[in-house]
Simulated scan of single mutants.
Amino acid sequence: MSFSAYIICATPRSGSTLLCDLLTASGIAGRPNSYFRSQDISYWAGLWGVDDPTTDFDPTFNLAYLAAMKRAGLAGTGIFGLRLMWQAVSDTEKRLNAAFGKTADVATLLELAFGPTLFIHLSRRDKDAQAVSLVRAEQTGLWHVATDGSERERTTPPHAPFFNAVQINRSRDRLITDDENWSSFFDQRGFEPLRIFYEDLADKPQATLAGVLSSLGRDANISSTINPSTAKMADHTSFLWKQRIS
């Protein structure tokens, strides 16, 4: 099957930034990002010159936003890339229904918007480690670092992390539920997504990229020329926290 788009269906701290970076760096598979993340809608709209909406689900705004999103996500490569967290699915459905003037299922709307779509289910086997990573990012404000050790994404001024078993367990339960919701999403619609695990992506990023490019009908050989720009953040503190909740 020939695809004109792909959607990385993920949960926080599952390696989605690393995968987005690799696909963007390939130069042949769009520029995936979290274009439907509610907290970022205003940022993207301003960047793309889309006029402010009269309401959250203003049809005129959402149609114009969708058009601008497609240009950004295509990045001149002929294939559109999108990252979508489970928490954004409901809002995405509302925005697309507003744009198209329909009342339809989000899967139908996504293919209407972007054409034949490859769904990529990005998950993490070790949910304890994922929860620890998420809590540390939330506490410290530091979400990503570059391979040279410099900060790539920070959302708050620096704060020292502190062990909180309740917070970690709550995050783990939410991550498990979100991942299960993605599985149900595919099962209920008869989709067979391309399945990728964080552990494999982190261990063999170029091989993982090659698999995605091949599934999209793109030249997988280019993956050997792409190096990760995002580094792992787990350290001895992460290990100790995980041991304390295991």
Rank of each mutant, 00 (worst) to 15 (best):
S215H: 08
M69D: 00
S26P: 12
L82N: 12
G73D: 02
A68D: 00
F80C: 09
M1G: 14
A165T: 15
I168T: 06
S34L: 13
T60I: 15
S34H: 10
R71E: 10
R136F: 09
L122P: 05
N97E: 01
R152Y: 09
K204T: 14
M233R: 12
I79W: 03
L216V: 14
W48D: 00
Q188K: 07
A88P: 05
A75P: 08
S38W: 00
T60Q: 13
L63K: 09
G76K: 11
D126G: 01
A29V: 11
A220E: 13
I196L: 13
A45V: 15
K204L: 11
E151N: 14
D128M: 08
D56Q: 05
R13K: 11
F163I: 13
K127T: 10
R37S: 10
R189E: 05
R195F: 04
T147F: 08
T11W: 01
L23A: 09
V135K: 04
G217Q: 02
G190I: 15
E138K: 15
W86D: 09
W143I: 08
G190Y: 10
E151R: 12
V132Q: 04
P228V: 13
T117N: 04
H144K: 08
N221P: 02
N33Q: 10
A88G: 02
D52L: 10
L63T: 06
Q39N: 15
L175Y: 09
S184K: 05
F61S: 02
T92I: 09
T17P: 05
T92G: 04
G211Y: 00
E111Y: 02
S90C: 00
F61R: 04
K242A: 12
